[in-house]
Design a protein around this nucleic acid. Structure first.
Length: 545
RNA sequence: GCGCCCGUAGCUCAGCUGGAUAGAGCAACAGCCUUCUAAGCUGUGGGUCGGUGGUUCGAGUCCACCCGGGCGCACCA
């Protein structure tokens, strides 16, 4: 409902001689400042060389107060203009929600721009841990926000199936197999100690043809490599599916090692004079593009660094027609951003093509104490554990409710609580309560529609609720722009709080017919917004709990 | 040492891109069940926004320098 007013204010700014000024139209914090407030007059003061309060008066002369949009307006403080919306606007808002239904909150802001969101991208060497869960929730949330704001989104997972780590996991698996056969065989230095390889070793021995896995390791390695990559990928995908995340595309690191892809990229750099040889290695002049130091592309032993195929991969995203590539990375990779950015700048891509959403470390609190984790010993909380403890909905919500770039302590006890303290529960409960009204009345909410009388909404809570519902699309937009799903969870918690209060104080069923009908309409609209928010974040919106 | 992120109520965190008297949840205290889910609602107390300067009509928000914490600084991935 603020859209119409915003357009009107933009028009007036033009009339006064300052089109394209950027001003804020927002719901003011304090009571008594109206439903919406703008700083337009203060922003105009500079370019128009006039006093804010004088300009505010001129704005109000242009805006026909009392007709349509605004019931009342006043100038306050240093030059704010506060607006009280007309009841027509409130009715319109509710009708808009009913009409848009599960699309309410969507916008076309992105103009169909093609965005690639790459996340999780875990090594296929072991189970996903809680950190991957956070990346999965955040990546999927960002992707979803971009979809809601009119972008053409591809969710992508990059499989690191080419590096040394794969060799290590094969060696470790081999060690576990020898151990299973009764030999005293150590896990190599830098190998994987996790227990999952004990199981995998048994499966390998049982399932693979004996000839293909007979010693020596060098002979068995190809079969084991294929086996462990497949098993790990299958497990990761099954878990991610349970977690509610689907990918459109799986990129493969080994595919990026193809000789002519690499050659083509190196040629581009060479043509621009950006590579040089030193100490037997091939370097890229990333310092020309803001990096701290130049980076090695091809090591002196002839193999590639991780960076080179990764540049190929990002160039591939560009060639596939994406306007933007957003990578969700763990904090431990953040030193890597500058060199990737530099490499892509070296290829001549616009700076906004590549973007990194950072995900900081996750600690897990359970039974009141921190769960110790050591990745080297293979001893960490897996995403599977977490989902078993608290369920996928709670896990996702918790990861989404905090900004990604700050360390996060996952409180397992809180996440599994079925009480008001648990925000997931609290929000879902609000939805269930709205559904409950229709269940008790034995009415299909989809069939509650049509005009209602604003005067029949007798409590201030009624209209306050409508005003909050109207804010949803704005929150989705800002969350999408900032890649900040936590704005949506924050909104949902505020809304849920208000919904519980409304539910408590404003009876629906059994009120006079006009009021009952108006509140049923409002309950339906509320249920829609709650459901849309939850769905957007990849959560269920239960009808009863 | 250098770079990036962070520092807001006792605790966990928001703060709409520079706006009005800095908010919410826990925790503490005090109330509220003839109810469409008490699995809930309402009220109260609680702050030098890490510090010091600066930019301007106006700073939690922007700049500089300190203090304190996290992460990163490979011919690893």
């Amino acid at each position: 409902m603020s859209d119409a007013l915003r357009e009107e204010l933009e028009r007036i700014a033009g009339v006064l001689g300052a089109p394209n000024v950027s001003f804020v139209l927002e719901r003011p914090r304090g009571e008594g400042h109206g439903d919406l407030a703008t700083n337009l007059a203060m922003v105009l003061a500079g370019p128009l060389r006039s006093k804010p309060r004088t300009l505010a008066e001129r704005v109000l002369e242009e805006l026909k107060v009392g007709h349509g949009l605004v019931a009342r307006a006043e100038i306050a403080g240093p030059g704010f203009i506060n607006f009280w919306l007309s009841s027509d606007q409130l009715i319109k808002t509710v009708e808009e929600i009913l009409e848009a239904g599960s699309d309410f909150g969507r916008s076309t802001l992105g103009n169909g721009r093609r965005v690639n969101v790459e996340f999780v991208s875990a090594n296929p060497t072991g189970p996903l841990h809680v950190g991957h869960g956070r990346g999965a929730a955040l990546g999927d949330g960002i992707a979803s926000l971009l979809e809601w704001t009119g972008h053409d989104v591809t969710r992508e997972f990059y499989i690191n199936d080419a590096g040394v780590q794969v060799g290590r996991v094969v060696e470790s698996l081999w060690a576990r197999m020898r151990q299973a056969l009764g030999e005293d065989f150590p896990i190599p230095d830098g190998g994987y100690h996790g227990e999952y390889l004990i199981e995998a070793a048994e499966r390998a021995l049982a399932e693979l043809p004996a000839a293909s896995i007979a010693p020596p390791l060098e002979a068995a390695a190809p079969a084991l490599r294929e086996f462990i990559l497949r098993v790990q990928r299958e497990e990761q995908d099954a878990l991610l599916l349970d977690f509610g995340v689907r990918f459109d595309v799986y990129g493969s690191e080994s595919a990026m090692h193809e000789a002519d892809r690499i050659a083509r990229l190196l040629e581009q750099f060479r043509d621009r004079g950006l590579t040089f040889e030193a100490d037997g290695a091939l370097w890229l002049r990333t310092t020309d593009f803001g990096d701290d130091k130049d980076r090695v592309l091809r090591k002196s032993d002839g193999t590639y660094t991780y960076l080179l195929p990764d540049i190929v991969y990002h160039a591939d995203k560009h060639d596939r027609g994406f306007d933007r590539a957003i990578d969700v990375w763990g904090a431990d990779h953040h030193g890597y951003i500058a060199r990737m950015r530099a490499a892509l700048a070296a290829l001549g891509y616009p700076p906004e093509f590549f973007e990194v959403a950072m995900v900081q470390l996750v600690k897990v609190m359970k039974d009141g104490e921190e769960v110790r984790m050591s990745k080297r010993a293979g001893d960490f909380v897996t995403l599977r554990d977490l989902c078993d403890w608290v369920g996928a909905d709670a896990a996702r919500y918790f990861f989404l409710m905090r900004r990604g770039d700050t360390p996060f302590i996952f409180d397992v006890d809180l996440a599994r609580a079925r009480t008001e303290e648990n925000p997931v529960f609290y929000v879902q409960m609000a939805h269930a309560r709205m559904s409950g009204i229709f269940r008790v009345a034995d009415i299909d909410p989809e069939r509650v529609t049509g005009p209602f009388e604003i005067a029949a909404l007798t409590a201030p809570e009624d209209t306050d609720l409508i005003k909050t519902l109207a804010l949803f699309p704005g929150f989705v937009e800002r969350a999408a722009e900032g890649r900040e799903p936590h704005r949506v969870t924050g909104y949902l918690e505020d809304l849920a709080r208000q919904v519980h209060g409304w539910y408590h104080r404003c009876r629906v069923l059994g009120e006079p017919p006009a009021t009952e009908h108006a509140r049923l309409v409002l309950a339906r609209a509320t249920r829609t917004v709650l459901a849309n928010g939850l769905t957007l974040l990849g959560l269920t919106a239960p009808d009863r709990m």
